[in-house]
Design a protein around this nucleic acid. Structure first.
Lengths: 226, 226
DNA sequence: CCTGTGTGTGAACGCTTTGTGAACGGGAAG
DNA sequence: CTTCCCGTTCACAAAGCGTTCACACACAGG
């Protein structure tokens, strides 16, 4: 088995001990540069990222992993109890998390569970909404069974919107969460991408992306009418 | 939000306390028969199953849920530390798990994470008054279950009024708190927006916004009347 | 009943926001 | 280096909607 990516380098003793006890090989990385430099030939099978000592660096690494072309599926985040409330808006950045102090066997159990879910036996990760389906592994999109030829940014924007059906996002929010946190550019960029998305979705499904005047855009109908 | 399915009935105090603290409604079930009998009209939004006191029953319930036609997506299992090794071969039966003793906030964080992954997102922020409901995330409004097509300013005005039921606001106060503190314009603007709101609310609910002569407007019933 | 103040109503104006077409420029592939 | 692709930006057109005005009506006091 290829070694797991572990951040930071060196990781806290509890983590290295837990990984060693479970028989997981691992490689510590201290920076984003290391991720590429130390990457195994078959790619990283997963990552365990500790956000306690260096939260900023940890989240930055998560973002880099998720935005990069590395299909690094299972990301396990290690946080302290005080950091739990701050996870709300960063759900996209990890697949599972552990709270310190670690329980005996919990790390092993969570890694097993993660590998089981992302293993070959299970279905590929999909984002679906009605007729629309996005395959997160192959970067393919399809609607009504017909494949859509989307560019990278179009795909990322649609993925984000379709992951939060019904919710309205301002252009600024979309720029920061789809384009990147440090992005600074014209808000009209979003408009143009939305236009192209609507065009590629076809007249029939163009209404999936609705504009909320003076606010931003919304994908699909909200399902709160209960 | 529909109540979560919780097993067993009654659940351990730590669980009920944690759910109540997080604001999650829940229904305790003691048997598989209860699952059907107590199911909400819209189905169960998720399940929290404690496997400590009755492991057999808990796993049987998981199997029943997963085999049944109920698309009960997020299943959170609560186990004791000793039960961790036994989870290996039952990965399909749950989506996530917690190890006792529960950390403060961990239950809430895991439920949020699960709901996020399964697309339902966290409980939407609502402003409600009687038949009226405003969804702050989707910028949608509905009354008696029927959606209202409000413009931005209409929505903002209604949101402000409905957030302070029974209280009377002068036009100047509304202008400064809804339109903005530096706003300078005619006070009659408020009248026109109130008129349009009343029209869109329909004849039946137009009385929700009452005019207090020589003062301003009030939403809902005065607090004096019992 | 008469009068004045305050509010409801309809329509028109004009600004702001968004849709649209096209061009620019950087980066990757050949 | 050349070429193509695609993300970004700009300028213009179109639509939406907030604001204002003029007038009609309701209510209270004398």
């Amino acid at each position: 088995m290829e070694p797991l990516l572990v951040f930071p380098d060196p990781p806290p003793p509890v983590l290295s001990q837990g990984l060693d006890l479970g028989g997981y090989p691992w490689t510590g990385v201290g920076s984003e540069a290391d991720v590429d430099r130390l990457e195994p030939t078959d790619g990283w099978p997963g990552a365990v990222i500790v956000a306690v000592t260096d939260p900023e660096g940890a989240l930055a690494l998560c973002r880099a992993i998720r935005k990069g072309d590395i299909p690094l599926e299972p990301v396990l985040l290690i946080v302290s109890s005080e950091q739990l409330p701050g996870l709300d808006l960063r759900e996209d950045l990890f697949d599972d998390f552990c709270v310190l102090p670690l329980q005996a066997g919990e790390l092993d159990a969570r890694l097993k569970h993660l590998f089981h879910k992302t293993g070959r036996g299970t279905r590929p990760e999909l984002v679906e909404y009605g007729e629309l389906a996005l395959n997160l592994e192959t970067y393919q999109a399809a609607i009504s069974g017909k494949p859509l030829d989307l560019t990278y940014m179009e795909y990322e924007l649609l993925k984000f919107l379709a992951s939060h059906p019904g919710k309205v996002f301002t252009r600024e929010t979309l720029l920061s969460r789809v384009w990147g946190y440090e992005y600074y550019g014209g808000a009209r960029t979003v408009d143009v991408h939305v236009r192209r998305l609507r065009a590629k979705l076809g007249e029939e499904h163009a209404g999936l992306i609705q504009t909320v005047r003076s606010v931003g855009y919304r994908f699909g109908q909200s399902r709160w009418m209960a």
